[in-house]
Simulated assay, not measured.
Amino acid sequence: MTSWRLSRNSVSELRPVLSYPFEAAPEHGELCEVAPGVYWLRMPLPLALDHINLYLLEDEDGWWIIDSGIALGPTEEIWEQIFANQLGDKPVKAVVATHWHPDHTGMAGWLCDRWQVPFYCTQGEYLTGLVYTRATSEHFGWTNEQHQIRAGRGQVGADAARKSMGGAGHITRSLPTSYRRLEEGTRLTINGQRWRVVVGSGHSPEHACLYGESLNVLISGDQVIPRITSNISVSGIEPEGNPLREWLQSHERFLQVLPDDVLVLPAHNLPFYGLHHRLRYLIEHHEDHLLALEEACSDIAQTAVELLPVLFKRELSDSQIGLALGECIAHLNYLYHRGQLERSVDDEGRYRYLAVDDTLPMRLRKRQHQADTELPVQV
């Protein structure tokens, strides 16, 4: 097949116009009111991404906590400072999780037990969280090992993945033993304001965003973040999963059901305006990656490990390989299920992917023309 090399000066390097109404984040233990009765706070993370944004909603008789922080470092101490200094005479009355990841639910069980209050979460996130936070290396199994070998990591990589299984449980206090289910369209009335649940998928199974209709505020969790892109990953628990399809479908739907002028309160970086610009950029970003992977497979069949440099230009550390590989496989599964890649197993048990869509040269030319004629737009 003729190869039309896609210039890396492509749409994925462009940034849509976003505006940031707050110049800086609040200090740990401090609250910043971003809308009437809506408060922004930060907790540290021991990662390259060194923070998470959490939110408090003030009700007439108490406070709703949206996401909880990770169960490491000074998180508990900072929460106690907030309880002592920031809540006045009102107690916490509920804890809400946008999704199950440890930086969002790590302290949820502790918070619910401390205040003896209900835990709100979607069913998909609650059940997935129970599985991942209770898993140990004993649960790795032959299917997970096969998934790593199929990806091209070999036995050494499979053993490393086995050793890392169960990490979520070390940074998450025991999840609450019951929950109140959030679903698409669920409405919570808080301080006379209606908050509607808008569910996305892809980054996690059933991610709950909260849209304050009268305030025109969206608590977006990890579903929509400025400046960085959320990980969309396939794991050995569902090796044939297609989370990227769910992610793209969610973003297309968000364009229809949420206004562009909403104030977006993300889990990372700063609150921003420009939701539709950001959603379109994220869609284009992944479509660009899909096309680049398809192009890389046009001349010779490649493994997922061999294709990592197509998506990640920087050198990946050992701790980053798992998520990076999961994201690469998510893109490959999307193309495979759509019939644009074929997949075979080589003598070492690795999947190899080969582009089979005859429209690829035409699509590469079209994308290159767009890249050549579009001007960069600054954030």
Rank of each mutant, 00 (worst) to 15 (best):
P309S: 09
L341V: 07
A292M: 13
Q249T: 13
Y351Q: 02
R343Q: 14
E240T: 14
L210S: 08
E252G: 10
E287Y: 11
K313E: 12
I228D: 09
N231A: 14
L316H: 06
G236E: 06
E284I: 02
Y211C: 09
Y334C: 10
D261E: 15
I329Y: 01
F272L: 08
Q320D: 13
H268D: 04
Y211H: 14
R280C: 10
L332Q: 02
G349S: 02
L335D: 03
E306T: 12
N333M: 05
R253I: 11
S344K: 09
Q256L: 10
T229S: 10
C328K: 00
S233K: 04
S317W: 10
V217M: 07
E348N: 06
E238R: 09
F312E: 01
S317L: 15
G349N: 00
R253W: 09
E294C: 07
T303D: 09
R280A: 06
L248N: 06
G212S: 12
E252C: 07
H331E: 08
Y351M: 00
Y351W: 15
Y334A: 05
I225H: 00
V305Y: 11
H289C: 12
H251C: 04
I283S: 05
C209T: 13
E240N: 14
Y334V: 12
C297W: 04
D260F: 11
L275D: 01
L335P: 03
L270K: 13
G326F: 01
H337A: 02
R245Y: 11
S298W: 09
V217I: 14
D347W: 07
A208N: 12
H251T: 00
G326E: 03
Y211F: 15
N269C: 11
E306V: 08
V305I: 14
W247F: 15
R314T: 13
D288F: 10
N231M: 03
G326N: 04
C297D: 06
A330E: 04
V305N: 01
G241Y: 06
Y351G: 02
G339A: 04
G326P: 02
N231G: 01
H337S: 05
L244A: 04
N231E: 09
S220G: 07
S344D: 13
S250Y: 12
E295Y: 05
P243L: 08
N216M: 04
A304N: 06
L316P: 02
R227T: 00
H251Y: 10
I300N: 12
L316Q: 07
R278L: 15
S317N: 12
A330S: 14
I237H: 12
N231P: 01
Y273I: 09
R253S: 09
E252D: 14
P226F: 03
N242D: 15
L291A: 11
A296V: 11
V234R: 02
I329D: 06
Q340C: 07
H207Y: 15
G236P: 11
G241R: 12
R278W: 09
H276S: 11
E213D: 13
G274V: 08
I228S: 10
